[in-house]
Amino acid sequence: MNTHNPLWRFAGMRPAAWFFFIFLYLPIVVLVVLSFNGGQSATLWGGFSLKWYSVVANDAEVVRAAKNSLIVATLATLISTSLATLAALGMRGRAFRGQTLMSGVLGLPLLVPEIVTAVSTLMFFSFINLKLSLFTILIAHVVFCIPFAYLPIRARLEGMNPYLLEAAADLYASPWKAFWKVTFPLLSPGIISGAMLAFIISMDDFVITYFVAGAGATTLPVYIFSSIRMGISPKINAISSIILVISIAFVALSYYVGQRKR
């Protein structure tokens, strides 16, 4: 398509796109810049300084919340990615009856509004008399991480050449050996990118965690929320910037891994 043809320049298209990207990134940039503020105010610039980062690093409550977040996200990622990988392998191949329904169930956490998942999970734990703790957070996180881990793995499997497995069988590889020698190496970029997405989603979740977190089981987003409730502060700017940069780094990495060896 000849995009240099002036006929293709629709009025307002370029300004809208500019507005879109500025609107999308301005708050993020402003937040990160303000996190390096040396003054006492959250919004008035008082010179460059890393002061608030050292305040954050020395705050025992923040460090504990960060540890909780890391523990939950790591475990939720390991569990949900394993479950999702097995499910993706099970869904591969000729369609069977009920498969559409099963894919629907796997995608359910994406469809149900977060607040609904949050309150229904809370009521469920209350119904089975399970005390709210880090463990209940973990269960909830595994559930909503499954589709995020599943979709990239499934996409990778679908793009795989089925003749490779036949070739392996022709060369007398057992199904088990064929899996580890052929399927798994080809699938691993999908698994890695799925695991990374699950990790980010778990690290970032606030709404569901907020409902199923017991006393003392504070994660970083829950901590941030309760601090914001008390008013904006340069300390929140610093914690928020750390979270943002970690997420963006992970997404960029996951994107890179997914693009490689296509």
Partner: peptide
């Protein structure tokens, strides 16, 4: 087919117990 269902079972059960059942309870 049995093998494939077995592979999908852990994820399916997790979602049935911790997602669908809570919605029912709700």
């Amino acid at each position: 087919l049995g093998r494939r269902l077995l592979l999908s079972a852990p994820a399916m059960l997790t979602l049935l117990v911790f997602m669908l059942l809570p919605l029912g309870i709700m």
